[in-house]
């Protein structure tokens, strides 16, 4: 500590240790904050039609188009160390021989829900305005132009979706998904913290963290294949997220 340079080195060196200790304390502190997420997830409609994986494909596969209702309160997942949660819904159905092959899972919808203080990112989710609620009139500022990831008057983690279109149509490895039985929709998430570990959804109580209540649909079966002439194209539309421009040709 006898000269300026040595003092700079010493202070900076100890600062790195202190910063690491602070980060560790933040990462552990989330265990002290109770969580009690709840969600109700229901199947609205499911249709199976033939389609192609991409325009130039000669392969014809069966695609399931699943619409759902989701009413979730995940506000308790947002604590001081939550940057965003990645929310996704999977359709899962048992394999042909459940004793040896695990069930198949396919994601039908997902969303990135940022905390209120997270930095702006174009990929984050914009919650649709629920039916019966007038969209707010804003003629004045640009800042209110982009919608929020939760309905009007809510907070991050509130999701109210009615008859929501899927983001992804799903198929099986074999290309056949019609008439598969015992399928369920399940809500999942990743909590992405500012500092610390990525946390998956859980259904068991663990310390102060209660498991997810609900978040699983009733068992359903994929219907039989419908001819393309009997299904309106408008019914098979998918939702696009904020990431729609990712990977598309310039």
């Amino acid at each position: 500590m006898h000269s300026t340079v040595v003092r700079v080195q010493n202070v900076f060196g100890f600062f790195t240790s202190a910063a690491f200790a602070v980060a560790a304390a933040i990462a552990v502190s989330v265990l002290l904050i109770p969580q009690a997420p709840s969600a109700s997830l229901e199947l609205k409609n499911v249709q199976v039609v033939k389609g192609r994986p991409h325009y130039y494909s000669t392969k014809r596969e069966e695609y399931a188009h699943v619409k759902f209702d989701l009413d979730a309160d995940l506000t308790s997942l947002f604590n001081w160390n939550t940057k965003q949660i990645f929310l996704y819904i999977t359709a899962s159905y048992p394999s042909s021989s459940p004793s040896t092959i695990p069930p198949s899972e396919a994601v039908i919808w997902d969303a990135i829900i940022p905390a209120d203080n997270a930095p702006l990112h174009p990929n984050t989710y914009v919650h649709p305005t629920p039916k019966g609620v007038k969209p707010p009139k804003n003629k004045k500022s640009k800042s209110t132009k982009r919608g929020k990831p939760y309905p009007e008057g809510g907070s991050p983690g509130i999701i109210k979706l009615n008859s929501q279109k899927p983001k992804y149509q799903i198929t099986d490895v074999k290309g056949k998904i019609a008439e598969r039985e015992n399928a369920t929709l399940t809500l999942h998430w990743n909590v992405q913290p500012y500092v610390g570990a990525l946390v998956w959804d859980n259904r068991q109580t663990w310390g102060l963290w209660k498991g997810l209540k609900g978040g699983k649909s009733e068992v359903f079966s994929f219907p039989s294949l419908k001819g393309s002439e009997t299904v309106k194209q408008a019914d098979l539309k998918t939702e696009t997220g904020g990431e729609r421009n990712r990977g598309s040709p310039a």
Binding site: M1, R7, N10, A18, A19, I26, N79, W80, N117
Partner: peptide, 28 residues
């Protein structure tokens, strides 16, 4: 000796205060 003690004390104190302030106001 004083500079060494000051460094240790101030950095530990500011770390502890920063975590407490952030945790109580829930603002990282």
């Amino acid at each position: 000796s004083l500079a060494d003690n000051l460094t240790t004390f101030l950095l530990i104190a500011s770390s502890v205060i920063s975590v407490l302030v952030g945790f109580t106001t829930q603002d990282i």
